[in-house]
């Protein structure tokens, strides 16, 4: 939407956004706003759906009865977040005659991306711990920002999600704490997992902007869909977690990581952003396997969905 050619309707809409009004699903909204929201929320939804899979690998293998219960509850919550978000996205797509089937198709054909972290391998139990502690920790930082989103149904869903993430993070912390305080074998497992996940955690927030915001970002900020830059969120992540990681005697695989005592700004080694682009384009270590797993079971379940659907969907 170009600001100089606003219709009255568009001007009124932006005025509402500016004064902090929340927009509801059946309020009038510019098509551009709807598109930005669908793009963001559908990606968030499939990231939760695909994001259940890396930890799911450890659900049946969790070491104790207690951990088995907690990690099942945690992964179930992730699927539940997928449900909340896919419902919000579906309501937005309704005027286009689309629904969740289209979102899943877009995921399987690669038109719709999911978060880089969920393309990564999880070879040990410690990976499940690090995901809970640090990946969910990173997610809460970005989702916390989005609570102020101008689109009310998304903000309401995020409110539920962020509340549950509190449990997820502590579940992850608890696994990592037990490993850190455990045997040399357990500590080594944790350190290896941290080494594996560090670059992915930095990538999670997206490339630094260096004062150059993309058009998507500018629009999202204009519409109050998001309010912080990638780099601001990554800096917040460092401030929250680096000292905790160090306090457990763990080594962060970046000898240049440093916080300026005056500005509090962190400097760090950039991850390989070309690799990031490869990963999110479904060329990560586990992209193919997990998409294959999800799409096979989705196809296998088609007859079940037909059994509970109102009428067969065309196509």
């Amino acid at each position: 939407m170009l600001e100089e050619t606003l219709t009255d309707q568009e001007a009124y809409f932006l005025e509402r956004v500016d004064r902090g009004d929340r927009i509801e699903a059946d309020d009038w909204m510019p098509e551009d706003y709807r598109q930005q929201l669908v793009r963001l929320i559908a990606m968030h939804a499939v990231s939760e759906i695909m994001g259940a899979l890396p930890e799911k690998e450890w659900v049946p293998r969790a070491p104790t009865l207690y951990r088995k219960l907690a990690i099942t509850a945690k992964v179930q919550d992730e699927v539940g977040h997928g449900q909340l978000l896919i419902r919000v996205a579906e309501d937005l797509m309704r005027p286009w005659g689309k629904n969740r089937e289209d979102i899943m198709d877009d995921l399987f054909t690669g038109r719709l991306k999911y978060h880089n972290v969920f393309h990564m391998a999880t070879p040990t139990w410690a990976d499940a711990g690090v995901i809970g502690w640090l990946v969910d920790g990173a997610a809460v930082i970005t989702q916390g920002m989005s609570l102020s989103c101008s689109y009310a149904p998304y903000a309401r869903a995020l409110q539920r999600i962020v509340e549950e993430e509190g449990f997820h993070i502590q579940h992850g912390e608890s696994i990592c704490m037990a490993l850190a305080e455990g045997t040399p074998m357990q500590r080594a497992m944790l350190q290896d997992a941290l080494n594996r996940w560090w670059p992915a955690l930095l990538m999670f927030f997206g490339p630094p902007e260096k004062n150059q915001l993309s058009t998507h970002q500018l629009r999202n900020i204009r519409y109050r869909i998001r309010s912080k830059t990638n780099e601001e969120l990554r800096q917040r992540f460092f401030s929250k977690y680096v000292h905790r990681i160090w306090s457990l005697g763990l080594t962060i695989p970046d000898p240049t990581l440093y916080q300026d005592p005056v500005t509090k700004e962190w400097t760090y080694a950039q991850p390989d952003w070309e690799e990031f682009r490869q990963i999110v384009n479904n060329r990560g270590p586990r992209s193919e396997a997990r998409l294959g797993l999800r799409s096979t079971t989705y196809q296998e379940g088609e007859w079940v969905r037909r059994t509970i659907a109102l009428s067969p969907t065309a196509g």
Partner: peptide, 12 residues
């Protein structure tokens, strides 16, 4: 506790 008594890399 670990803020005040951080562990070494070997856990000590």
């Amino acid at each position: 506790y670990y803020r005040d008594h951080p562990m070494n890399p070997d856990g000590s």
